[in-house]
Every structure is written in structure tokens, then in C-alpha cells.
């Protein structure tokens, strides 16, 4: 799969309501954040929630860059039981996380971060899930719902 990353429009690959952003340079993190804000705004999130969503995207996108060098972020609108929300999926084919529960601990970090990438993003979002194993890449899937606080 190949995704262009120059400019907002060309980086968009709609599959239904999805936007995919290829993450392979730090400027792509900014791009992914902007898409998160655009889609989140359309869904109806408040200014504070939009900032929270953009921050969470920033953290998982940087995780991709630091640990796997490249990957992708998929952002889409979701709805369930009459409520709407945003789903962000961060996917890479990097080395994977051998011990997820360890990685979810506060202050744990093997990269250059502060160790709040994953646990921090979990606090920002309503739902959070990590699928990973050593050697098989990592998928982080997180959701936030409109009008639900957390």
C-alpha cells in the first residue's frame, strides 16, 4: 500500500468515511492530527475534545515513528447504540510489543518518549485496545464518543 503525504487533500484516501495517513516522517504526525480534528469536528466534538483527540493521535503516531519507523493512522467516524464517535487505528509492522501490560504501565518507556504514549492516550480516550506481539507489529485502536466524558 502506498499513501501520499503531501498536503491534506492528497493524503486522504476515503474508504467509506475513513481517512488514512501514512506515518513515516515527523511532519506526518501533524498531518494526522489535523485530519483527526477535521473529522472530529464533523462528528460534533467540542473544542476541548478535539484537542484531546489530536493529542492522542499525536502520541500513537509518534509511537509508530519511534518504534516501527513507519506505519499508518486510520481515522473514521463510528456509531453505536445511537451515539457517534471517532475511531483511530494506528498500525505498524515494527518489532511489536513483547509485554503489553508492561507497556501500559505509567512511566514505562523503551523509546525516547516520557513513557506516557500508550497509558496517556488511554486516559484521553474512552476505549483503548492494543494488539501486538514480538515481531508481528502493533495495532492500537482507540475510540472516543461524543458527549461522554472521561
Amino acid at each position: 500500500m502506498h499513501f501520499s503525504t503531501s498536503g491534506l487533500e492528497s493524503a486522504r484516501r476515503h474508504v467509506g468515511d475513513e481517512v488514512r495517513v501514512l506515518i513515516e516522517a515527523d511532519s506526518d504526525i501533524v498531518l494526522a492530527r489535523e485530519h483527526g480534528r477535521l473529522i472530529g469536528k464533523k462528528i460534533g466534538f467540542s473544542a476541548t475534545d478535539l484537542t484531546i483527540i489530536a493529542t492522542a493521535i499525536s502520541e500513537v503516531a509518534r509511537n509508530i515513528l519511534v518504534f516501527a519507523k513507519s506505519g499508518e493512522i486510520v481515522i473514521r467516524e463510528v456509531s453505536e447504540h445511537g451515539r457517534s464517535g471517532i475511531q483511530i487505528t494506528a498500525r505498524d509492522n515494527g518489532p511489536g510489543i513483547p509485554d503489553i501490560s508492561l507497556a501500559m504501565q505509567e512511566g514505562y518507556s523503551t523509546g525516547k518518549g516520557l513513557g506516557m504514549g500508550l497509558p496517556g492516550s488511554r486516559r484521553l480516550m474512552d476505549e483503548f485496545q492494543v494488539i501486538s506481539s514480538a515481531g508481528n507489529g502493533t495495532i492500537v485502536e482507540m475510540k472516543k464518543w461524543v458527549n461522554q466524558n472521561g
Binding site: A47, T48, T51, I52, T55, L114, M116, G120
Partner: peptide, 11 residues
């Protein structure tokens, strides 16, 4: 909003 997100993230 940024301050709010920062403290939620733990920063």
C-alpha cells in the same frame, strides 16, 4: 483546551 489535554495526558 491544550492545558486540559496536557494534564489528562499526565504532562
Amino acid at each position: 483546551e491544550v492545558a486540559f489535554a496536557m494534564v489528562q495526558l499526565g504532562l
